[in-house]
Amino acid sequence: MNENRFVIAALIVTSIFLLSEPAFAGPGGKIASAAFETFWGRIALGSLTIIFLPLITYILLREKLSERRARKDLRFMAAHCSQFEWLKIQERVKDCFFRVHSGWEDEDLSGVKEWMTDWYWQNQQLAHLERWKKEGLKNICDVKKITNIKPLLFVHRNHGQEHEDSMVVISIEAKMKDYLEDLRSGKVVEGSKRYKEVGTIWSLTMSNGQWKVSDIEEGSMSLAYAKLVKDLPDIETTVVSDLRA
């Protein structure tokens, strides 16, 4: 019970740091927050950091433990299939990240369809991009560089064929600007034209032997995924059983 209260408090704090008023923009449906960019906003951020330092430390610790478990499980799986080598996954994630953002700013994801699961591609194209065009809005997503990539969760599956629907959840931090612009007035509706560190959570699912983007979420979801690690079965036991079957 105490742990649950602690986790709820941690999620609230994480939300304070990562979220402003939500707006439908950016790959995944949320635009990068522009909170704490003013002088007084930075003062407030510094004060909150000091006050909630124990909770922030808890979040970082849980994420570190989940990253260690994910890397260990991926190393084990890499001995059976090269698609699970972290370096290969990392390169695939980088390609997906830049390609999806490029397609997003062009308002056309048809060129990156093969890099996303069918369901997610349709969801993003129809639910967000098409609607924005009708509303006269455009999302500007310019990525300067990726600053950090780390795995948070790895789940191995064999749905229908070997390794099918296996999933890896990855935290990505990038220096970028992300804002929603009204094409008629040229005004920024949400977000900021400044380059800043933006954290997002990308899920990749194995589909026909390839890692494809199946979800993009806000960085505040990292703790929720880190908590799931303790419920995962031992990778050595489950995979050996699947291989024997």
Rank of each mutant, 00 (worst) to 15 (best):
G199F: 03
L228M: 15
L65I: 10
G103Y: 00
M1P: 11
I170M: 04
Q161A: 08
L48W: 06
N139V: 07
G209L: 05
R92C: 11
Y120M: 01
A70Y: 02
K187I: 03
A224F: 14
K134I: 08
D118N: 06
R157S: 12
S185D: 08
Y225P: 00
A23Q: 09
E236N: 11
W40S: 13
G209W: 03
G26S: 08
G186M: 07
E91D: 11
I16E: 12
L153W: 01
K138I: 14
L153R: 06
I8E: 15
F98G: 02
S241T: 12
V239D: 01
Y120S: 03
L19W: 10
C141V: 12
L152T: 04
A32N: 05
G41F: 08
V143Q: 00
F17V: 14
M116L: 14
K30Y: 14
W115V: 02
M221L: 14
L183F: 04
S203D: 01
E21C: 06
F98E: 02
R62P: 01
F52N: 06
A226V: 05
E37C: 06
D165N: 13
K196Q: 14
T117P: 00
A70T: 09
I216N: 01
D106M: 08
G191I: 04
F24Q: 11
R194T: 12
E190V: 01
K113F: 05
M176R: 12
N148M: 09
V112M: 02
T57R: 04
N208E: 13
K175T: 11
S47F: 14
N158H: 14
D178H: 03
V143H: 00
N4E: 13
N208R: 04
R42D: 09
I50Y: 10
S214I: 09
R5D: 10
A32I: 02
L61T: 09
